[in-house]
Structure formats: structure tokens, C-alpha cells
Simulated assay, not measured.
Amino acid sequence: MGVFIVRRVLAALLTLFIASIVVFLGVRALPGDPALVLAGESTDEATLAAIREQFGLDDPLPVQYWNYVSQAVQGNFGLSTRDRIPVAQIIIERLPVTIELTVLAVIVGLAIGVPAGIASAVRRGGPADYAATGLGLFGLSVPHFWLGLLAILVFSVTLRWLPASGFVGIAEDPLENVRRMVLPAVVLGTGLSAVLMRQTRSALLGQLSADYVRTARSKGVSRPREVRHALRNSLTTVVTVLGLQLGALISGAVVTETIFVIPGFGKLIVDAVLARNYPVIQGAVLVTVAGYVLINLLVDLTYAYLNPRLRLTGAST
């Protein structure tokens, strides 16, 4: 198990290193001169030259990359070009909002997708199977922005049950926080629930047709106990899919937070791109990539815990 963990950690660090290079080069490939953005209304050459020298924009790209990485590992992502606030401070303020939204969306996805997948597999060919499959197809097909606008129209404008937009911190008013996060969490969690439903159904059907289940059935094991044992062996697939879908939740949060005007990480990236705020774009995307790599590392370790054969194979190779 120790060898397996070391291999996965090294692979995660290598992935993060490559991602940092891609982010660094990608930001510098954006059209426009960062010096012009920093200069504001002043466009004289002396001001632009001073700005390029101050921020190291005239240095070779390897030097710029080394300076950026050496500062980033210390938590220093530079200053926002818009309001001169440290990027790390902006990230610390915005990240908890997106984490809360993502956690709520995962809860919604698990609460809907896993039970629906179990019901669909156990009642294969029945009304529950067709209903769950239809709902899963609906969840996969409907775009987040359309579902978000429809939810606002129905629950905020027509029924007036929930606020249409805005955000209130959980420490400030927990009840109001929940009221304002319900619609975004349901909209974001719908697609996840559809994916989890289909994967749970497929994995559970495969386990229910396995030899050990047929043997247990022939010995008189009850149906609930049979499903319980098969479900446990199906969790490895569900955990893997859930980890991979967290990346999709982050990208979906960009649209959802914009629709519901939630000051989270997704909206921060959108606003930074529109304002050509390069330090914020660079820091936010790098933190997002680091979070995604960390999530996948945790998924690998969880998968190995649930499936001992995997860690034995990983150690031997």
C-alpha cells in the first residue's frame, strides 16, 4: 500500500507541474498586452516600460515561470490588476462559496442518483427502471443555464418560494444561506445525479449477475442482503465516477454562479477573463487545477482501499 501511495503522489505532483506550465503559457497566449491593462489610461512608452520592468514582463519566459512558481508555492499569486488586492486574499474569500455549492450539489446528486440507480437495477424492466432511466436522460440532456433560468422562473418569479439570486454567508444567516443555495445546488446536482444513476445501475447489474451472487441466491440469501453485498462491490465504480465528475461540477459552477449571481470561484474566473485580470486568472485556474488533482488523488486512494487487488497490482508494477 505504501508503494501505491508514493506512486500516486508522484504522479499527482508531475501532473500539477505540467498543468502549471500549461496555465502559465495559456495566460500569456491571451490577446492583449498586460502592460496596457496595468497602465490603465496611460499609454506612454516610459510608463509601459516601467510597468514591464516592475512585473518582469521583459524577462524570458523561463525566468518569468520560475519567478511565478517560486512565489506561488508560498501562496503569493501577485496583485489583482483591477483593485490591487492580493490574489490569494481574493481566492480565500471566494473559494469557500464554491466549495459549499459543490458539497451541496454532491449531496443532491448522491441523494437522487444512487437510490434511483439501485431501484432501476433491482426493478430492471419495470416502471421504476423506465422512470429512473428517463430522468437520467433528462438530467444529462438539459443544459445548466436553461435549467437554472427555468428554476428561477418557476420557483422565484411565479411561486415566489425562493430568492432568484444573491448570496448570504452561512455564518451571517444560516437559514437565508440555505434558501439562496437550494436552487443552485439542485441545478448543479441534477447532471451529477443522472451520471451517478446510470453508473450505479450498470455496476449493480453487473454485480447481481456475478457468480458469487448467484451462489448466494441458490443458498437462500434474502434479496435485500444480496443487493447489499452487490452494492458494496459496486461502490468502486461510483466513487471513481464521482471523483471525475467533481471536475465537471467546477466547470458547471461557472455557469451556475453566473446565473444566480453567486460570488464564488466560477464567477471570479469569468469576471477576471472579461477584465483581462491576468494575475487573478492565473491564480484561480492554478488553484482549480490543484484541487482537481488532489481530488483525483483521493479518489485513487479510496478506490485502492475499496479494491485491494488494485493496490496489490500497483505495488507489483
Rank of each mutant, 00 (worst) to 15 (best):
I5Y: 11
V6N: 04
L13F: 15
T15V: 09
A19Q: 13
V23P: 01
V27F: 04
D33S: 08
A35C: 03
A35H: 13
G40S: 01
T43A: 02
E45G: 00
I51F: 12
I51R: 04
R52N: 10
G56R: 10
D58I: 05
S70T: 15
V73C: 04
R82Y: 12
R84K: 13
I85L: 11
P86F: 14
A88W: 14
I91C: 02
E100V: 01
V106S: 02
V108N: 05
V114I: 15
P115N: 08
P115I: 11
A116Y: 14
R124M: 04
G125M: 07
G125P: 02
Y130F: 15
G134M: 11
L137T: 08
L137Q: 11
S141R: 04
V142G: 00
H144G: 03
L153K: 13
F155T: 06
F155P: 03
S156I: 12
P163M: 14
A171V: 13
P174G: 02
V178I: 15
L188W: 15
M197H: 06
Q199C: 00
R201N: 11
L205I: 10
G206D: 14
G206C: 02
L208H: 09
Y212N: 02
S222K: 07
S222C: 05
R225A: 09
E226M: 13
L235T: 13
V239A: 03
V241Q: 07
G243A: 07
G243Q: 10
L244S: 06
Q245N: 14
Q245K: 02
I250W: 11
G264M: 08
F265E: 01
F265C: 01
P279I: 05
G283A: 07
V289P: 00
A290M: 13
V293C: 02
V293F: 11
N296K: 09
L297N: 05
V299S: 01
L301H: 06
Y303N: 03
Y305T: 07
Y305N: 01
P308Y: 13
P308L: 12
T317N: 05
